[in-house]
């Protein structure tokens, strides 16, 4: 039990970094991340609304649709009304008007998702944005203090980000075993996607990478090995030291999936790029060089008391 506790503490320390002092740059950086998350959610909500109006019946109930009938959502007005609620709830959450706003947005977008994806497809493209919104919702309920809100939500985003990729690798090893990386499996998926793209767009042409992949079995196998290995180490995003390298691999994997299988997970890539690299150091550096006291004062007013982070002090010493 003691070992389990120590393990949980070790993970908590990595993802929440309790000793780390929040800089002005981090505040701006987090606002950007939060804006990205709510923009993605609002975009999904409005994109799904017109589609829901076309659906008449449920083929495969997902999530809460397994317990509650979502037929009432198959209406000309309700999906748009729900998208409006999601937009308002996200805006209220961002402006900290009510601590339950983000939670309302989570439930509303869950309903939008289970209504939109009731025809049999289990879409994963929006999962990352949904998890990030959930992290904001939990943090908003738990913490009034902005610094703690940001620390918890960022830690929770990192936790589920790492868990998601590694669990995907574990599923592959359980579902197929180590031979999952057999290049012929990729050929089969490329064949599947060729039918999908032809049916969706009206034409399909293999790209250069797909042609090489189909020609060379070893290349197809290496690509699958890279994908599986990258997913398996996804959990290492919990460590701030390894995070940028792992995120680079994950972004590369997503591009690989897009080029070989024509499957785009763009919202994952956006969140990975923003959450995976320490952009706040750049912002801190820029703020320090600009040294606009009015801008700094404005940030301080929103953020609360802050001090110069240690790493910036050392950078400042080295600047002639």
């Amino acid at each position: 039990m003691n070992k389990v506790n120590k393990f949980i503490d070790w993970i908590s320390n990595m993802i929440f970094q309790p000793g780390q002092v929040e800089s002005r740059g981090y505040y701006i950086y987090f606002q950007m991340l939060e804006l990205l998350i709510i923009s993605l959610i609002i975009t999904y909500a409005w994109n799904w609304a017109p589609y829901i109006s076309r659906i008449q019946d449920v083929v495969l109930p997902l999530g809460l649709a397994q317990y509650i009938s979502v037929h009432f959502m198959f209406d000309d007005l309700l999906p748009y009304l729900n998208a409006g609620i999601i937009t308002l709830a996200c805006a209220a959450g961002f402006l900290r008007l009510n601590k339950f706003s983000y939670l309302i947005a989570v439930f509303a977008i869950h309903f939008q998702y289970i209504s939109r994806y009731s025809l049999g497809e289990i879409s994963h493209g929006s999962n990352m944005a949904g998890l990030c919104l959930l992290a904001l919702a939990v943090a908003a309920i738990l913490y009034k203090d902005g610094i703690r809100f940001r620390k918890f939500s960022f830690g929770m985003i990192l936790f589920f980000m790492g868990l998601a990729y590694t669990s995907a690798a574990v599923c592959k090893l359980i579902g197929t075993g180590p031979l999952w990386i057999d290049g012929r499996h990729l050929w089969l998926w490329i064949g599947e996607r060729s039918v999908d793209v032809l049916s969706a767009d009206g034409s399909f042409q293999l790209n250069v990478l797909q042609e090489f992949t189909i020609q060379w079995y070893w290349l197809a196998t290496i690509i699958l090995f890279f994908g599986l290995a990258t997913e398996a180490v996804g959990v290492m995003v919990w460590s701030s030291f390894f995070r940028p390298f792992i995120v680079l691999l994950l972004v590369g994997m997503h591009f690989g999936i897009e080029w070989t299988m024509n499957i785009s997970f763009s919202s994952y890539v956006y969140v990975l790029i923003l959450a995976g690299f320490p952009w706040f150091k750049l912002i801190d550096y820029a703020l320090d060089r600009l040294n606009y006291s009015s801008l700094n004062n404005m940030i301080d007013r929103f953020q609360g008391d802050i001090s110069t982070p240690e790493w910036l002090s050392s950078v400042k010493k080295n600047i002639p």
């Binding site: 289970i114 999962n127 998890l131 919104l133 669990s167 995907a168 574990v170 592959k172 999952w180």
Partner: peptide, 10 residues
Amino acid sequence: WPFSIFPMFS
């Protein structure tokens, strides 16, 4: 949703 163990392609 939004929880998943991502079993697609497994």
